[in-house]
């Protein structure tokens, strides 16, 4: 059993080496396929993480009139806290709002000057509302619009976030579709080319196969070298594709985002995500790439064996 395995293993490897440029082309196509799948996977993963991140940061800010006293605002706060969808309400006083606004624009002199020239605090107090579930913000926003304290409220800023999330969702959907289309298309091409290479190996070994049958080689003994050949193509391709996608993602993550031609590097968040993505998921990425490579090879081998190897 072991002798058979090692003998077919060796002849499978020899077949690959003797295929020369054809072997290189085959490995190249599988490498490109695995690379594309990996990079597209990273994009989809990054976008999903971005969506979750945005969703977790979503809240409704209710800005109250500057004339409202603190006591009145707190009354509104306790009323909102009674809504069943609401997880928490954070009160931000006029002073806190101003301080954080100043800090946010610390490098903008015009704004700083304008505030100091104004003399008094132009900002009203705010209530930051968090729901248990991101889906509930719309309902909360509607309740506030219909509430008795509607007159005291300056602005409810839910709509802004809704647009962002909807856009992001749309982008993710189209991104996933593209990733899937690209992945499947290239997989099919890779399988066809590998299939063809193995077929050519079989053709070159016609005489050997004939003799093997005559001297009573088992069917598996005749088939195994071609199966190994397919597995080798996939494995070698994966071994090349893994560092390739690592360096590619690294370049994307550290490159200048604004001038980039890369489709998904336009977000700083995704950049920072990608810089850690590969290392954090190394085990998963490497094993899935090896698995995919071998899978592509095995599918090609099995197809070629079934179609062309008459035993």
């Amino acid at each position: 059993m072991f002798a058979k395995l090692s003998r077919t293993f060796k002849s499978g490897w020899k077949n690959l080496i003797r295929n020369g440029s054809l072997a290189i082309a085959t490995i190249g196509v599988i490498t490109i396929t695995l690379f594309i799948i990996n990079v597209q996977g990273a994009t989809v993963f990054a976008n999903n993480t971005l969506l979750k991140e945005v969703e977790s940061r979503v809240n409704i800010s209710v800005y109250v009139n500057t004339e409202m006293s603190e006591a009145e605002t707190l009354k509104i706060k306790s009323e909102i806290e009674r809504y069943p969808e609401v997880k928490s309400v954070e009160y931000i006083s006029r002073e806190d709002a101003l301080a954080s606004f100043k800090e946010l624009n610390s490098d903008n002199e015009t704004i700083q000057r304008a505030i100091s020239e104004l003399g008094e605090n132009p900002l009203g107090a705010a209530l930051n509302i968090r729901a248990y579930n991101p889906d509930q913000y719309q309902a909360i926003s509607k309740k506030i619009e219909a509430s008795s304290f509607r007159e005291s409220v300056l602005e409810v800023n839910y709509q802004k976030y809704r647009g962002v999330i909807e856009n992001l969702n749309k982008e993710i959907k189209s991104n996933q579709r593209m990733a899937l289309t690209l992945g499947i298309t290239f997989s099919v091409i890779a399988i066809l080319i590998t299939f063809n290479s193995i077929r050519i190996t079989m053709y070159a070994h016609q005489k050997e196969i004939e003799i093997m049958r005559l001297v009573g080689a088992s069917n598996n003994y005749i088939r195994l070298p071609f199966l190994w050949e397919g597995i080798f193509y996939g494995l070698i391709a994966a071994i090349i594709a893994i560092p390739l996608s690592y360096f590619y993602l690294k370049i994307v993550a550290t490159g200048d985002a604004s001038g980039s031609v890369l489709p998904f590097s336009n977000s700083r968040f995704i950049q920072s995500f990608l810089s850690g993505y590969f290392v954090e998921n190394a085990l998963w990425i490497i094993s899935s790439q090896l698995f995919l490579g071998v899978l592509l090879g095995v599918i090609s081998s099995v197809l070629a064996i079934r179609k062309y190897l008459k035993i």
Binding site: M1, A3, R7, M212, V215, G216, A217, S218, Y221
Partner: peptide
């Protein structure tokens, strides 16, 4: 030797 290899004989 090939005829024996395919039959799984030892080296």
């Amino acid at each position: 030797a090939f005829a024996m290899e395919v039959a799984g004989k030892s080296n």
